[in-house]
């Protein structure tokens, strides 16, 4: 009998989440009894020192890593026992990812990078222009990543994450490689996407600017939530 989630309206929710690498004397606990929820329209910043478990938590939330115990609900659906194929489909249809190193396809233009995600999600490839317009890159459709600044690359990555209109955005250190101005612009954009379009946005970050702008900050240390 699957466990039911405590916050039925949440976009993402965890209960008693733990993650242990290895076994026996060499076992390392990366996450220990993590309970939290993120609602639609909310920007949640996950902050903590390096090795505290925040990226592991993001990977579990993104269905890329299975917890050792505990449960995760995505839009109310328990995912612990879903097969890999269903997890992949869930990621594809309900989530958008933003990476620290942008992870764009260097051989494709900005528009084509977005079109890959659109095609994977079965959407109209012509939507790419609108998505890039939305992130302020309407005039950079045909530029390759090497022709873009760091901030522009991250905005292309955000446009790609928005392909298919996913209700959940997961971002891993999205401002780490950006200067102050570009970093702030990216955070503002993520906040807009959450507040104006009702998306749940989880941002793993060391950047205090993100913490300042986020709706909620959750600190994590030694695999446990502190606040």
């Amino acid at each position: 009998m699957p466990q039911t989630n405590a916050h039925p309206g949440s976009a993402l929710e965890t209960c008693g989440l733990s993650l242990v690498y290895g076994s026996g004397e060499t076992a390392v606990t990366a996450l220990d009894g993590v309970d939290f929820a993120v609602s639609a329209g909310e920007v949640l910043a996950l902050m903590g020192p390096s090795g505290s478990g925040k990226t592991s938590l993001l990977m579990i939330l993104g269905c890329l890593l299975r917890p050792s115990s505990g449960e995760v609900w995505v839009e109310g659906r328990a995912i612990a026992n879903l097969p890999d194929r269903d997890l992949g489909r869930l990621r594809l249809q309900r989530m958008g990812f933003i990476f620290q190193s942008y992870n764009l396809f260097p051989a494709l233009t900005a528009a084509e990078n977005v079109q890959v995600a659109l095609e994977l999600k079965g959407r109209d490839l012509n939507d790419a222009a609108g998505l890039l317009e939305r992130v302020g890159l309407g005039k950079r459709l045909h530029n390759f990543p090497r022709q873009l600044s760091g901030g522009e690359k991250q905005r292309v990555a955000i446009a790609r994450a928005l392909a298919g209109d996913p209700p959940i955005l997961l971002a891993d250190e999205p401002t780490a490689a950006l200067d102050s101005t570009n970093g702030r612009a990216v955070v503002n954009l993520l906040c807009e996407l959450a507040h104006e379009q009702g998306r749940a946005v989880v941002v793993v970050t060391h950047d205090p600017r993100v913490g300042d702008l986020a709706d909620r900050v959750v600190r994590i240390e030694d695999g446990r939530l502190c606040s």
Partner: peptide, 11 residues
């Protein structure tokens, strides 16, 4: 890039 595709949920 293939890792990115898999992470995005590409079949």
């Amino acid at each position: 890039e293939f890792g990115t595709l898999r992470a995005m949920g590409a079949p």
